[in-house]
Write a protein that binds this DNA or RNA. Structure first.
Lengths: 110, 110
DNA sequence: ATTCTTAATCGTATATTTGCGATATAGAAT
DNA sequence: ATTCTATATCGCAAATATACGATTAAGAAT
């Protein structure tokens, strides 16, 4: 692969793609699902639920945090995470503004 | 990486992740955006719009088709694509059933 | 039948992701 | 001060994704 061309697309396209990328792995969906149900959760609980090593879970958490989908606070030796609902609302809004408006009008190919 | 562990998650988690993965690249978002606006579109038009080589666009189209997000029909030497809106509705429904129900109740971490 | 047009596929190079064990770090408990 | 506990980070191996040029395939036009 010569060069990555992601920068040549619009900001909105890049932003949507980045959000989608963050949730494009079942482990990260599972983490978000746990957080949505419990409102907040420490890392260790997530490690126990997922079929992955602690270091791997920590990496997934980091990705979610970098993408802005979750917030994290350290609480003594523990780390407490929760969903950043604003990011979800923004994704929903952007997603729908791109794809939902024409639903009614559409039929099949050609 | 020893083994991929995606199969160890629930079907719903895998399905959501697969959809997200399909839209996790700006080029594929751009393709879907064009299709949403035009209802249907032949491959060549998409190639002209995107800053990518024909073979690369064709690959992205294939991924979107494999993931079920678009349908394609061949029309003589051309290929005509359109969005599979049902897949989008399913994604929206699954996504919201996982993440939307608790929005109100949620505050910040810990 | 040959040539032209359009799109898919192949082969290849490089970048990124995924996963884990080992190690480091940092606060808590003794 | 030392030890314990919880989590992050490092280093590595293997799998996947991204991109493109070259080639193939298949219908259209001559």
């Amino acid at each position: 692969m010569a060069i990555h061309k992601k920068e040549e697309f619009s900001t909105k396209e890049q932003h949507l793609a980045a959000f989608a990328k963050a949730i494009s792995h079942p482990a990260r969906i599972a983490i978000l699902s746990v957080l949505a149900k419990r409102n907040q959760c420490i890392c260790g609980e997530i490690v126990e639920i997922l079929p992955l090593a602690q270091s791997t879970v920590s990496q997934h958490l980091k990705e979610l945090k970098n993408a802005g989908l979750i917030d994290g606070e350290t609480d003594g030796p523990r780390s407490c995470y929760c969903i950043n609902w604003k990011a979800f609302e923004k994704f929903n809004a952007d997603f729908n503004s791109l794809f939902e408006k024409l639903k009614e009008a559409n039929a099949k190919c050609c």
